[in-house]
Amino acid sequence: MKYWTETIAIARRILTELLRRKRSLIFWAIFPIAVLILNGLIFAERSKTALPEPLTLGQALQRAAPATLVGAALFFSCLGGSVATVVSEREQHTLKRLFLSPLSGVSYFLGIGLAHSAIAVGQTLLVGLTAYGLGARFQGSIGLAAIVILLSILSYVGVGFILGTQLARRTEDVNTLVAAFGVPLLILGGAFVPAFIFPKVLLDLAQYNPIFHMNEALTKIVDEGNGLAEIGAHFWFLVVFAIAMIAAGWLSYRRMLQVERRL
């Protein structure tokens, strides 16, 4: 009960602060929708020359939605958001105040994860409903798609903790970190440019990029209606990666606690 109450308190605080900053909230909504529509338009246009039968806008959005979700939306909200939360607590020193209370480290970790999962669910609905409203019709197992999205969220939150506790000390560092690590990974993951047009060397490299596997797994489920058997390689890569990142995030967080636990 103690852990539950504390986890909910942490998550509610993060979400309340986010809701209070309405402008940020609006930007967080505009960003994935803009990327979705741009990606959809590009897909639709390219299909006129690349495919025997061109895609309708709905079909193009159906193909663009997974990459938009895991690449543009979840990456920035879960990874960028986790980094920003940890860094802002350290920068404003509110972390010290938390240490003075009986709050457990587990609850704090889970609370941040829960808050960003809630944001991610909101973005999933936003991207999904926008695409649906413009004609996309998703296929495949909703449960399997939800698991892939959950694994993506856990991976991003874990990496967010690693970066936020070990590499970023100030809010300004968040942007440079995301730009340095994130944007190349997003491009190599097929978030903005479809992976099938990559040269072979980049495609080989992409096999080591978790975003590529998130993107491929989700696209194969919702656009092509594939099941676990067809996406197995991507799925298990993601499972291992998510577990590894949560473990590494937890260890990084514990290390930060040892350093920051001072008045």
Binding site: K2, T5, E6, I8, A9, R12, R13, T16, E17, R20, R21, Q92, H93, T94, K96, R97, L98, L100, S101, P102, L103, L263
Partner: peptide, 24 residues
Amino acid sequence: PQETLIYRYLTCQENLQFFANLYG
């Protein structure tokens, strides 16, 4: 603490409620 460690985007009541929850 010496520094005023509060959450700036929460109201006074929300700040108190948050810490009250942490104390159970």
